[in-house]
Amino acid sequence: MPLSASKLHVGDTYEEVVVDDLTRTQLVMYAGASGDYNPLHTDEIYTTEVAGYPTVFAHGMLTMGLTGKMLTNYVGDGRLTKFGVRFTNQVWPGDTLTATAMVKEINETKGTLLMDLDVKTLNQKGETVVSGYATAKIDP
């Protein structure tokens, strides 16, 4: 359901657990679909022995994709006009991620009602893994 400006308030939040106990298989699926076959995400031997990390870790774009699922569940399909993030911490197998959107501003540009959101995704330790923004079209 598209969101309606008349029912929205600055400060409203929407939250979703976007992945629970992230698996290495999910990273393999993301590599296959996206075409990012960097062994850092799927090859334990390379990642630990050559790259010097404790284990493989998620593609930043997987975390952004999971965060985008929360956004589209909130604002509706085909409603986003902008979505951007900074990757602030790595995401590891076993992590559980919770993504949150907060209404920052509601405005009208050239006859279109838009909602600006602050976006944040946290891991189970409460660390921010991505932080960013989104803008979505809303109904009156």
Partner: peptide, 26 residues
């Protein structure tokens, strides 16, 4: 540059070595 017989198939630096995704905007 990923593992096969050895931990990396390349002797030198990998094409992405040290490269991490910092920001993404659409």
């Amino acid at each position: 540059f990923g593992s096969g017989k050895n931990a990396s198939g390349l002797a030198g630096k990998a094409p992405s070595s040290g490269g991490l995704h910092a920001e993404q905007h659409f």
